[in-house]
Design a protein around this nucleic acid. Structure first.
Lengths: 154, 154
DNA sequence: TTTCATGAAACATGTAAAGTTACATGAGAA
DNA sequence: TTCTCATGTAACTTTACATGTTTCATGAAA
């Protein structure tokens, strides 16, 4: 299975949007992410439904951030995406009649539930502002300037 | 991506083998798992390489357990399978030039690394004996008898 | 009324797990 | 020896699903 990169992708988009004044088109964001505008609209739909971003049609339209980076966490974004499956491993069958399989499932499920709880707690501790601050620290460390429109040309 | 169920499957096989005297064929195990004998050989190959099971060709051949259930843990089995990917989510690109993406990756990687450590530690705490004991507890609770050959007929 | 943008459905593609086929190898039985 | 049974393994097929693409409807500004 290919690994789901929607969370990674949408965070990338959000941090770029934060560097840009005014609305940004799906077309532009698709260029930044090296993908298709429809893919951008798809992953942004969930965020729009939750009010984290706003979209406008027509001339001068596009996407804009509509939330406070200080309070929205990666967990919020993850859930806005529909809380996609976190683990690549699962049980062969979910409601087996075989007692052996029930025992196996019980052990695996508990283990993965605990890992999921940790994962979500950790994501809940990282705000978009913290991510953005990390980006700016990296930018300062490199001593460079950031042009959001050309940063991906390389 | 379909979810990887090799670990779940191989544990199922091992616990069944523990209930049976003498060697068991891939054919039989495939019946238990409702899959193909070649799939069984495939997932068992890693365990054989580590000496957790033994296989014999020819008449009266098949698979036998060759390890101590008290000491082998689910983590050992997981690693014998080649330590397959645990998470369904990943970064869009692993070595991005974009500083935004580097910041995103750094946050995600740390979070997932911690979850992976927890997951492996938990798997390392569960022995095959513990799993088997849980199965027997379930069997006793149901008050039934276990016939490993027909348990999956239902 | 033209152009630019999103919204959404339908379809195509790429990838990896699982399933299948085919055949080589080796071990015991006849 | 020769037959049968079993694993070992490579190659191929199937299936599921994330992602990519096409297409057209809708609505807003020029």
């Amino acid at each position: 299975m290919r690994r789901d990169s929607k969370l990674s992708g949408v965070l990338h988009v959000l941090l770029h949007m934060a560097e840009i004044e005014g609305p940004v088109t799906s077309e532009f964001l698709a260029g930044v992410m090296q993908t298709n505008p429809v893919v951008v609209r798809r992953i942004m739909a969930g965020l729009r439904d939750r009010g984290y971003v706003r979209s406008e049609k027509g001339h001068g339209g596009g996407w804009q951030i509509a939330c406070d980076f200080e309070t929205v966490t990666l967990r919020d974004i993850y859930e806005a995406l529909g809380a996609p499956e976190l683990f690549a491993m699962g049980n062969r069958s979910e409601a087996p009649g075989c007692l052996v399989e029930q025992a196996v499932n019980a052990a695996m499920n508990q283990t993965f539930r605990e890992a999921e709880a940790l994962l979500l707690a950790q994501l809940g501790r990282i705000t978009l502002a913290a991510l953005s601050a990390d980006f700016h620290a990296r930018l300062a460390a490199r001593g460079g300037d950031f042009n959001p429109g050309t940063a991906h040309a390389v």
